[in-house]
Design a protein around this nucleic acid. Structure first.
Lengths: 336, 336
DNA sequence: CTTTAATCTGCAACCGGTTGCAGGCCGGTC
DNA sequence: GACCGGCCTGCAACCGGTTGCAGATTAAAG
């Protein structure tokens, strides 16, 4: 539509008095074409600011140059777990951009496994990116059965045979805990994630490592599990305060829970960070914009997105399966 | 790849002993095909859980069944303006899903206008969705020049000739202000957006309307402008407190600014909401998770996303240009 | 029993690119 | 002058669908 008259390589071919194939080769920088001819053709294309029809090209090449970002659409709208996903999605987008790939959003419904076929077998996408989820195993199995390249943000697990990229949870745990030790806290608690969660396990291991390195004892009473949601941050903190009233610091495995924890601490009449210091994890937007900006462990989202993009594309092209760990850093704000 | 042997309609055609075209028609529910044949073919397709190659279909039909969500990638990563965009994107995704359209992320670089051609002329997408931006005009002009259907989240402006969907900013302003009046506040201030911003203007008009309806005077000293960023929330509130120390309520045009405002209020020794009640706007995640959950005006993101999807697709198919206003609601939390 | 129409199916062209292969043109060599 | 090889270019098939049109079949009408 519009006023454009030069829409296909055939149009260009006519203008240049060559064949369609020559134009195709010229625009693809094939070495078969005489440099002069090539430049002439390119100039014509440029002049009419020609844009090749990518779907057609992709059909020919039997690829889509598109990857699907799988979102587990919660019926109830958003959870903050998604917030991290959303932030990383943007980073993936720019990462793919430079590789010539596009990012397609895939909305999968709760108990619907058809999305994989829908998008892969139909040639819509060449591979998938997903956030680690409880269902990770199932999906990963599904995808590898159909030979679909995919990459997961999360800790690699033996059952999952696709690429992974994950933050350095162990170092993150250490950084957070060491910070609390450094600022002179004596009773440092740990508010973790679900038991089965590998990331949380590593963060916990980091906590324990830092404690041991500092010659501290690891007391079970100083450790509780949460589930990353606000409520569990509150109840978890409640328990910690009851078991150990003189706790003076807590490393919380997620920013949202940290917010819950801070609320409970303040309600109990204690001040943050004076009485109890709090370190979160993830550096979500809410950590910055919180009333009391939260000291937290930042996952390098830009780099992670880029790596997710690069490694997935690599895997699509070569079949190589990679696992990467991305460094994290501590961001000191007001809460500790 | 994989074990699948039935990949194309031609394969199905062989199995069913019919021609390729018959299969195509059958799977598309063409009325030309004998119901019996149709069912037989569908059964075969089902049995081999066949997935049609969509790029090929789309090439044939000269459409992509994909729309691009244009994100203005800030060099510096994320702004909270994006947060709203991200939340709505997900809603758009599900809205498009039921219409059989896909959502593609488009990352446009700061001063690069080629994205429009890149994606539209190349047949990658059939239309665009964008958040209102300062550059709205330029982009909108670009898009209409190339006859590309698009829809914008934002207040319709004469220069922009594409579809729009926007929250009911006027009612939002009224709701927020009436709430503050209802809870008995005497000196209600308004912390607005940038002057040129139409949404902010309407919210302000809502504020003024509610004030007048309640028989209140509109005092310039009670009104300042912000720019939606945290810092401007702080400085704006600072000014208000200086000009009118006995201000006891403020309607802030954005949640992020509201957080800044709350901080300044508390720092000044006043309590929220006892001394100064605060109502925000947008109901971002940070409003819920804020240490002091914010009373705010919620844009119906789910509905908005759906409408953006529906109206854009309608516009792609028929060329109709629509403008929609989506109702908003007041969410009362702790800050007012 | 023919004519006509309605119903169904297949052929082949087409969407806009890519690519294997054949062939034209050129200069160099024997 | 004939032969050979390298460098370009074009033909035509192909990717996997859609669709206009023609033709076959059958039923209904005359």
């Amino acid at each position: 539509m519009g006023t454009k008259t030069v829409k296909t390589i055939e149009d260009i071919a006519k203008l240049a008095n060559v064949s369609k194939s020559t134009v195709s080769r010229a625009l693809n920088d094939s070495s078969l074409i005489n440099p002069e001819t090539k430049n002439r053709i390119k100039a014509i294309a440029e002049e009419h600011n020609f844009c090749m029809n990518l779907p057609a090209r992709n059909l020919s090449r039997r690829q889509s140059c598109t990857v699907g970002f799988v979102t587990h659409s919660h019926q109830c709208g958003f959870t903050v777990e998604d917030m991290f996903g959303l932030e990383i999605m943007s980073a993936i987008g720019s990462g793919l951009d430079v590789l010539g790939y596009d990012l397609l959003l895939i909305h999968m419904k709760p108990r619907d496994n058809s999305w994989a076929h829908q998008y892969f077998d139909s040639g819509r996408v060449d591979g998938f990116i997903m956030m680690k989820t409880g269902r990770g195993h199932a999906y990963s199995k599904l995808l590898s059965e159909m030979n679909a390249p995919f990459i997961i943000w999360g800790v690699p697990e033996p059952e999952i045979n696709g690429c992974t990229v994950t933050g350095d949870n162990l170092s993150g745990g250490i950084l957070a805990t060491e910070h609390l030790i450094r600022i002179g806290r004596k009773k440092i608690a740990f508010l973790g994630g679900p038991e089965y969660d590998l990331e949380a396990q590593l963060r916990q291991k980091g906590y324990e490592t830092a404690m041991r390195n500092a010659g501290r004892k690891i007391e079970p009473d100083l450790m509780v599990n949460g589930d990353y949601y606000l409520e569990s941050g509150k109840t978890g903190m409640q328990q910690l305060l009851e078991k150990t009233p003189d706790v003076d610091a807590v490393f919380v495995c997620g920013d949202v829970m940290a917010i819950g924890a801070i609320e409970v601490i303040q309600k109990s009449g204690r001040r943050v960070p004076e009485d109890v210091a709090v370190v979160g994890y993830d550096d979500l937007a809410i950590a910055t914009y919180n009333n009391l900006p939260i000291t937290t462990v930042r996952q390098n989202i830009q780099m992670s997105g880029k790596l997710l993009a690069q490694n997935l594309v690599q895997s699509i092209k070569t079949g190589v399966v990679t696992h990467v760990t991305v460094p994290v850093e501590l961001v000191v704000r007001k809460s500790a």
